Amino acid sequence: MRKVLLGLLVLAAVVLVLADRFGVRTAENKIGEQVAAQYNLQERPEVTIHGIPFLTQAIGGEYKHIEVAIGDWTEQGVTVSGVKVDMRGVSAPLSEVTKGNAANVTARTATASAVVPYDVIKKEAPKEVKRIGPKGDDLSVDMTGNVLGVPVNGTAVVQVKPTSKGIAVTPVSVGSNGAQQIPLALVKQQLTWVVPVADLPVGSRISEIQPTPDGLRVSATAENVRLNDLQQK
């Protein structure tokens, strides 16, 4: 009898684990479908619901941590890559999720992150800019051409800053490779530009920018976010 009871307990545990994993996959697919519909995405994003057991969270309608990997994101004709939304303290009533209704799905905080590739930044830059790469918290820019009629061939260090219009790129120092030295004030007049990416999917303005080997990693955080409010502009 003892062996029979032990066997039944093991079987029950296996069934519960399978039910838990099936439930989390179903919920992830439902949330992915909702996000795809909100943003008119061609592919359903990858959704990960953290925390075990899932069923306890689902029944209570409260999830500690949900990640949504959207992929590419386009704003004002500029496409960024690796877009992810990290949601904490998600309230999603089971009845709403099963019906595919996102009206009452909210997150205490939602942080979106993405990478703005350097070729995207260069595309928006003046024609004198030939190469862009990371340099600490700033960027290094190789320049060749003319600045206000003066030949230039050198490297400038530019800073990046989030603004209401997008990512502002402004020279902070400039050096020449044997060409005439140009005052920084003149360089700023011609080699200052804006990459028109100001907001991310959470509907909040970019607040952090960090240069990486692949591009600028940007992030934005919003509080008390409704899934229905995450509209692509």
Score class of each variant (00 low, 15 high):
N104A: 10
L216F: 06
V47K: 08
A19V: 12
D142W: 09
I209S: 09
T155G: 02
V4E: 05
V83Q: 10
I121A: 15
L139E: 08
A12L: 15
V10A: 10
D137G: 03
K64R: 12
S113V: 04
T98M: 14
A58W: 11
M1Q: 15
E28N: 09
I59P: 04
V78T: 06
L186T: 01
V225G: 05
A13K: 02
Q232L: 07
R21T: 06
V4C: 05
N228M: 12
G71N: 05
V35E: 09
V68S: 09
T163Q: 00
P201R: 01
T56A: 13
I167F: 09
K161P: 04
M87V: 06
Q57W: 04
V80S: 04
A19M: 12
L55D: 00
P151H: 02
A12H: 04
V141M: 03
L6G: 13
N153H: 15
Y63D: 10
S219E: 05
V17A: 13
E67Q: 12
T111L: 03
L216H: 05
T98C: 07
A185M: 03
I182P: 08
S164T: 05
W193H: 03
A220I: 07
Q190H: 03
V120Y: 07
G7E: 08
G82V: 11
S207F: 06
T221H: 03
K161T: 15
L200H: 09
N224Y: 06
